[in-house]
Amino acid sequence: MSRAFYWLLPHPLLTLLLAVVWTLLQNEFSAGMMVFGVFLGIIIPWGTSVWWPDTPKGFRLGKMASYCVMVLWDIVVANVQVAWIVLSVPNSKLKPAWIVVPLELRQPEAITVLAGTITLTPGTVSADLSEHGNSLLVHVLHTDDPDAVRDDIISRYQNRLKEIFK
C-alpha cells in the first residue's frame, strides 16, 4: 500500500504545492480547475521523479508552518530596523562585520532554508558556504557584538530547523 502510494506520488508535498499554485494562477475557485491542478500535481512529479530520486524524509509540516509565521514577523520587525539604520546612521559610524555560523544541519534542503531565512531577515546576508558545507558565511550590516548575532541565529533558527528536518 505504502509502496503504491510512493509510486503514484513520489513527492506528496510537491503535488499539493502544484495544485495550490495552479488554483491561484486561475484566480477563481472552480471544481474543474481544481481537478486539473491535482492532475498536474500528480503527473509532473511522476514524470520528473527520475531527476530527483531522494524524498526528504521526516519533514514536519506543522512545525514548518509555525516557523514560517515566526520568520514573517521577524522580517517585518527587522525591515523597520534596517530602514532606520539606512536613514539615521552615517557611513563613518556604520560597523559592518563578517560572521561565521557553524552548521549542524546536513541536508541541502535544510541549509537552503536556513540561508534563505538569514537573507530575508534584514541586517544579515548569507554570502557563502565553506568548501565541504561545514560553515556559513554571513555579512552583518550594523552590529556592536558579532558573536551575539551568531548565537541568535543558532538559537533562533538553526535549532528549530534541526527539529523540522529530523
Binding site: P96, W98, V100, P102, A127, D128, L129, S130, E131, H132, N134, S135, L137
Partner: peptide, 20 residues
Amino acid sequence: SIHTRTCATPPPPPRDDTWS
C-alpha cells in the same frame, strides 16, 4: 563581490580550508 575581491576579505572558516 567575494569572487572579484571588491569587498573586505572574509575570515577563514574554522572547520574547512576555505570558502567555496
